[in-house]
Amino acid sequence: MVLGKRLRHLREKAGVSFEDAARAIEVTPLTVRRIEKAEVGLRIPYVRELLHTYGVPAAEVDDFLSLAREANQPGWWYKYRDVLPDWFSAYVSLESEASVIRLYEPHYVPGLLQTHDYAAALMRVGFPNETKEDIDRRVALRLKRQDLLAKPESPAIWAVLEETVLRRPVGGAEVMRAQIDRLNEALDLPKVRIQIIRLGTGAHPGAFGPFHYFRFGFSELPDVVYTESLAGAVYVDQPVDVVTYLEVLDRMSVQAEPVARTRAILGELRKEL
């Protein structure tokens, strides 16, 4: 997406039309549009010729092509493609590149903060007809995503959870106690913030369903909001729509208990188990 937008910027700066760019690489103008929108892979011969057409200096061409080759490499999640729906692979990609992840979860602990046993219990309920091997693969993918938290360039994560998330028994009391302990450990990470909306808070503006907000360290990438359903997902990137979600997150964070209270609340809930 970043390189596609950079190609568009270079084309427009050079005053080259879609039709002229298409003639340079002997394709249709639609193909050039799709390259710029990251709807197709970056074929190196095409990219090289486009950069020459746009008058990019040779040294910069080499740097750009190196980035294009890197972008064409499958992500680490490719080996899990047998249990990774196409509509969710984009989520994993966004998650891996985000600098900020804010989210609202009314049902379950976010995947990045789940324990193995909690994740396995959810997978068994969500995919009752799958084999143990496939369930194990799904759990392995979810836990592999958590490697992100240990990286020096890990994103800032700000999660707003309903109290029901921690009261809903997933896998039994022992699994829930371990899951609450995991959340306490996550609070020790410098870039993780967790807030809890108590049951007595009442109505709030986000009570339509879970959603995740991503911000990136690239000016070419817009903020993106992810929402999920039983049959797929929607990725929202129009600024006017994204701002609506962001404002809701801000209002919910005010209604939720302060971050300083999270450990105490987790302790209270753990004692009840």
Rank of each mutant, 00 (worst) to 15 (best):
Leu3Gln: 03
Arg6Val: 10
His9Val: 12
Leu10Glu: 15
Arg11Ala: 06
Lys13His: 08
Lys13Gly: 05
Ala14Ile: 13
Ala14His: 11
Gly15Arg: 12
Gly15Cys: 09
Ala24Phe: 01
Ala24Tyr: 01
Glu26Arg: 06
Glu26Met: 04
Val27Ile: 11
Val27Ser: 13
Lys37Arg: 13
Arg43Asn: 12
Arg48Cys: 00
Glu49Trp: 00
Val61Thr: 12
Leu65Phe: 05
Leu67His: 07
Leu67Ile: 02
Ala68Met: 09
Ala68Trp: 09
Gln73Ser: 08
Pro74Asp: 07
Trp76His: 00
Tyr78Lys: 09
Tyr80Lys: 07
Tyr80Val: 09
Tyr80His: 15
Tyr80Gly: 09
Tyr80Phe: 15
Val83Arg: 05
Ala90Phe: 04
Val92Thr: 09
Val92Phe: 07
Leu94Gln: 08
Leu94Glu: 06
Ala98Pro: 11
Ser99Ala: 14
Val100Ser: 08
Arg102Tyr: 05
Arg102Asn: 11
Leu103Phe: 03
Tyr104Glu: 06
Pro106Leu: 12
Tyr108Met: 11
Val109Thr: 05
Pro110His: 15
Leu112Gly: 05
Thr115Asp: 02
His116Gly: 01
Asp117Pro: 02
Ala120Cys: 05
Ala121Ile: 07
Val125Ile: 13
Thr131Ile: 04
Thr131Gly: 08
Asp134Ile: 05
Arg145Pro: 00
Asp147Lys: 00
Leu148Asn: 04
Lys151Pro: 01
Ala159Leu: 12
Leu161Thr: 11
Thr164Asp: 12
Thr164Arg: 10
Arg168Cys: 04
Glu174Met: 00
Glu174Leu: 02
Val175Leu: 12
Met176Tyr: 06
Ala178Tyr: 02
Gln179Lys: 02
Arg182Phe: 01
Leu183His: 04
Arg193Ser: 12
Ile194Cys: 13
Gln195Cys: 12
Ile196Trp: 03
Gly202Ile: 07
His204Gln: 12
Pro205Phe: 07
Gly206Met: 10
Ala207Glu: 14
Phe208Arg: 14
Pro210His: 10
Gly217Ile: 02
Phe218Val: 01
Phe218Asp: 15
Leu221Lys: 15
Val224Arg: 10
Val224Asn: 10
Thr227Lys: 09
Glu228His: 06
Val236Asp: 07
Pro239Val: 08
Val248Ile: 15
Val248Met: 14
Asp250Gly: 06
Val254Glu: 15
Val254Gln: 13
Ala256Gly: 10
Glu257Phe: 03
Ala260Pro: 00
Arg263Cys: 06
Ile265Glu: 01
Ile265Ala: 03
Leu266Gly: 04
Arg270Thr: 07
Leu273Glu: 12
Leu273Ala: 06
